[in-house]
């Protein structure tokens, strides 16, 4: 077991999940509640990673973050380094690729919520923001937790985007699924099997949690 890879993978998953909680919740809320015309386009863009091959997303990100692109040069002038083959670069790719896994369950939770509960809170003097924290968030909690668990689990197992953007630098960008790939390439089947078992068990546990949350969400 490559403990450095375990640590790195957990770091990446935790960071991705945290960022998506902050970015995904407002985005999902807007998508669920808004009647704006551009909504469907945004929704499609958010869902794109579900069907897009991860290598394609990785390729575009790699070029967008590279030294020849304006974005890449801007980042370099700020930090003195480049995004590709670094942990921050990996994180950007991971956040984008996991967007639908967070936003879609959030959206489903917001959309099934009774709008009148929000209106009731407004009539009781609470601002839209306070209403979000006192009413919407607690009521949608099962759906939101499910989205976070899915995102975390999905990041743990992500391979394509990670390989394209991060490459395979131990301690920097080498995650668990890359480690498995490496082990297999090196014919180190025992190690690959061990890591695979851990990931299988983890994924199964995550799905059980999501299902449990789903049942509780519909029960109340």
């Amino acid at each position: 077991m490559d403990w450095q890879a375990v640590q790195l993978t957990l770091q990446l998953a935790a960071a991705t999940t945290t960022i998506l909680a902050f970015v995904g919740l407002p985005l999902a809320y807007w998508l669920a509640m808004s009647r704006a015309r551009g909504r469907f386009l945004v929704e499609a863009i958010v869902a794109l990673p579900l069907v897009l091959p991860p290598t394609v997303l990785g390729f575009y990100l790699l070029t967008a973050m590279g030294p020849h692109s304006p974005g890449g040069r801007f980042y370099q002038s700020l930090t003195g380094s480049l995004l590709p083959f670094s942990f921050p670069g990996l994180l950007v790719g991971s956040v984008l690729y996991n967007l639908p896994f967070a936003v879609r369950p959030f959206m489903a939770a917001f959309a099934t919520m009774d709008r009148r509960l929000i209106e009731a809170s407004w009539c009781l003097g609470e601002s839209p923001l306070r209403t979000f924290f006192r009413v919407t968030l607690p009521i949608c909690r099962p759906g939101i937790l499910a989205g976070l668990v899915l995102t975390f689990a999905h990041t743990i197992g992500e391979f394509g985007v990670v390989l394209m953007i991060g490459g395979n630098i131990p301690g920097v960008t080498r995650t668990l699924s890359i480690a498995i790939y490496d082990d297999v390439q090196a014919l180190n089947y025992a190690s690959a099997a061990q890591t695979s078992w851990v990931l299988l068990g983890f994924s199964f546990a995550a799905l059980l949690v999501v299902q449990f949350l789903g049942r509780r969400g519909s029960g109340v």
Partner: peptide, 14 residues
């Protein structure tokens, strides 16, 4: 500053 009673009451379930 109004009080509104919704048709099926819209009590906060949580």
């Amino acid at each position: 500053d109004v009080g509104f009673l919704f048709q099926d009451y819209a009590l906060f379930p949580h």
